[in-house]
């Protein structure tokens, strides 16, 4: 499934009666948030980092942080998806800072093509194409990388992306279109080179 329904915006519930019910409600709220948003967070992080094991680590970090601050979350301020993506974005920034500030697309990071009868050459071409696409993504300004990853990875609409990145919705539309065009131009150049 590529895109889920609009993320629900419920915050941590506070049942009026009894500590037991309050704890249960809080836990249920968190579990619902996890089930709804975890795949989207993972896809965004994975899209942005291009490395499944790093994506798992960062996604876990995001939800652990969300758990620690769950009581401070206010649904009036942001939807759960927006809140989590903002945490994820900071975690990704920290990750790249720790890793030496440069986003490197390594050969082994390119995901392997899954095919029933893969022709080796075709698989290598596909792998190289994926790697090239990742290089094109890494060549964009950080905010454009986020827009592309939130759109194509997390499947967010422009309004949600705008709220996550705290820019206007029209700005997201403009940047998205231009970023795709820039990536396309860069990718075309690579295709042209390989065909010669």
């Amino acid at each position: 499934m590529l895109a889920e329904a609009d993320p629900h915006t419920g915050g941590p519930g506070r049942a009026e009666s009894g500590q037991g019910e309050q704890v249960r409600s809080r836990r249920e709220e968190f579990e619902d948030m996890y089930d709804t948003c975890m795949p989207r967070v993972y896809r965004y992080v994975s899209y942005r980092t291009g490395n499944p094991s790093v994506a798992e680590d960062i996604t876990a970090e995001v939800f652990e942080k969300a758990l620690r601050h769950f009581d401070n979350y206010r649904k009036e301020k942001a939807s759960q998806a927006t809140w989590l993506m903002a945490i994820a974005r900071n975690a990704i920034t920290d990750y790249f800072r720790r890793e030496g500030r440069v986003q490197v697309v390594r050969e082994e990071d390119a995901p392997e093509e899954v095919s029933e009868v893969p022709a080796v050459e075709e698989q290598m071409e596909r792998s190289e194409e994926v790697r090239q696409l990742r290089l094109c993504l890494a060549g964009l300004p950080k905010i454009d990388q986020d827009i592309i990853s939130l759109k194509f990875g997390a499947g967010m609409n422009n309004r949600e992306i705008a709220r996550t990145l705290q820019v206007s919705e029209s700005n997201v539309g403009t940047r998205l279109y231009r970023a795709v065009q820039r990536m396309r131009e860069a990718f075309k150049g690579w295709e042209h080179e390989t065909q010669r």
Partner: peptide
């Protein structure tokens, strides 16, 4: 080209999702 970009999307494994949960 946008459709190509969609193919870069990766899904979390069930094992990871369950363990983290």
């Amino acid at each position: 080209f946008a459709q190509r970009l969609m193919q870069l999307r990766d899904e979390p494994t069930e094992q990871f999702a369950g363990k983290l949960r």
